[in-house]
Simulated scan of single mutants.
Amino acid sequence: MKRAYNFNAGPAALPEWVLQEAQKSWMDFNNTGMSIMELSHRSKDYEAVHNEAKSLLACLLSIPDDYEILFLQGGASLQFTMVPMNLLADDKTGYYALTGVWAEKALKEAAKVGKTETAVSSKDDNYTYIPDPAEIEVPENAAYLHITTNNTIYGTQWHKFPTGLKVPLIADMSSDILSTPLDIKNFDIIYAGAQKNLGPSGVTVVIIKKELIKKNPELPTMLSYETHASSNSLFNTPPTLAIYLLSLVLKWAENQGGIEGIAAINNQKAETLYHVIDNSEGFYKGHAVKDSRSKMNVTFTLQSDELTKKFLDEAKLAGFVGLNGHRSVGGCRASIYNAVPLEHVEALAQFMKNFQQNA
């Protein structure tokens, strides 16, 4: 069987090794006579998987002991609500950096919970760039500053982060977590839907400073971080299969040389595609300005809608999947998350060169 050239934005490509390992135990996990999907989440066999996933993530990301790792459900979209419900007190204001659609959605949900303000925005320029972190001003009495580190739709990414803040820094890292070295101590909460770099859809990772986890009886039980932290994310039935696959992805990441090894390949993948775009004499045009370009989502347009359609049609026939740009931007988008092999990116780069030559 020939694997597709999978450039989907999410759910995205998973490492072949992960799929093969999961297949081995599909019918009989750890000699239990049951699939991982059939195990009780209270069983020792599943508990070992659950705790191993936490341990692997803590090791790969160098997560300090004063942070809690949670495995939740509801995707990043539920975190848009949980963050303000747990942190946004009546006398505080949540500040948001607007750099794309998902940042807008996070702000919209927070505004339903309490007072919010826009700290900085690149919306006026169609989100082609990331604002300078040094220019972000947040008052000391703010509840927090929220950023979206990678913007899948527009193909932009934060390469430097705000520093010297007197308030918690919250980051939605759904589409670039585990892709490049990161100092966790610079953040107070990091959350990420797994379906791009960490595993399949269904589980959301939350990394939160323990001091921010507080018991609040007024919160709905399932929307309190304290509920999940106090029960090792086992208050209710977790997405056991997704967490198992997450643990396999983390093992795969270790075997790639950890984050440093993965980052080196990611840099090479991004450089391969941007080189084609920059040397196409305007045939391909990148959406993001160069110093804000994403290493996870390469967005570009062609010279006309007709040519774009022809490109996408021929790419599909050649086995490339998921290259359509988001409807709000148009054009094309290649999502080159951790599990997308360098060889697939090189194949796309060659296809782009050939298409330009034959257009």
Rank of each mutant, 00 (worst) to 15 (best):
E211H: 05
L169Y: 06
K160S: 15
L70R: 12
N186P: 01
S224W: 04
F320L: 12
E38V: 07
N86M: 11
P131E: 14
P200E: 11
M173R: 15
A242Q: 14
F71G: 04
N267K: 14
Q20D: 03
T227R: 10
E137M: 14
L248K: 15
N216A: 12
V101L: 08
D65M: 07
K215A: 11
M34T: 02
T93S: 10
Q303Y: 00
A134W: 10
G114I: 01
G282E: 03
S231W: 03
N86Q: 08
G75T: 02
S43T: 01
D172H: 06
H159R: 11
E109G: 02
A171Y: 03
A13F: 00
I277P: 02
N51P: 00
L348G: 04
P168Q: 04
A9P: 07
L219D: 01
A315P: 08
E16F: 01
T180A: 15
H275S: 13
K185C: 08
L248P: 08
V167G: 05
E271V: 06
V329I: 14
A12Q: 05
S55G: 11
E314K: 15
K115M: 11
N358M: 07
N338L: 05
A334M: 04
Q357S: 14
G199T: 05
F187E: 05
K316L: 08
M1S: 11
A142I: 04
E140G: 07
K209N: 11
N232E: 07
Y95F: 10
L273C: 06
A58P: 00
D305Q: 08
V249K: 11
N255H: 10
M27Y: 08
P181H: 06
S233V: 14
A339M: 00
A334G: 04
E306T: 14
P139G: 05
K251M: 12
Y127A: 05
M82R: 11
G10V: 00
T152N: 09
L56W: 09
I36W: 00
T149D: 11
L250W: 03
K115N: 11
A339D: 00
K185S: 08
L169R: 10
M37I: 05
A253G: 00
L302S: 04
S335A: 10
I208T: 06
V18N: 10
V167D: 04
W26R: 15
I336Q: 01
P341L: 09
L19H: 01
M27L: 13
S77N: 13
S174M: 10
F161I: 13
A53M: 02
S335Y: 00
I277L: 14
A339L: 00
V49P: 07
N126W: 01
K105G: 13
G164W: 02
V206S: 07
S35M: 00
I265A: 13
M37G: 02
I147D: 03
I147K: 14
F300T: 07
I213V: 10
E16G: 02
K269G: 09
S35G: 02
G74K: 04
L219P: 03
S247C: 10
L245A: 05
K123M: 08
K310T: 09
I265P: 07
S179K: 10
G100I: 04
G258M: 06
F80G: 15
A264R: 15
A349L: 06
G257C: 08
E52C: 07
I189S: 03
Y129A: 15
G261P: 03
G164T: 01
H287I: 03
T272D: 10
Q73S: 15
N126S: 03
L302T: 05
N266W: 03
M296Y: 04
H326G: 08
Q356K: 09
E346P: 04
E281L: 15
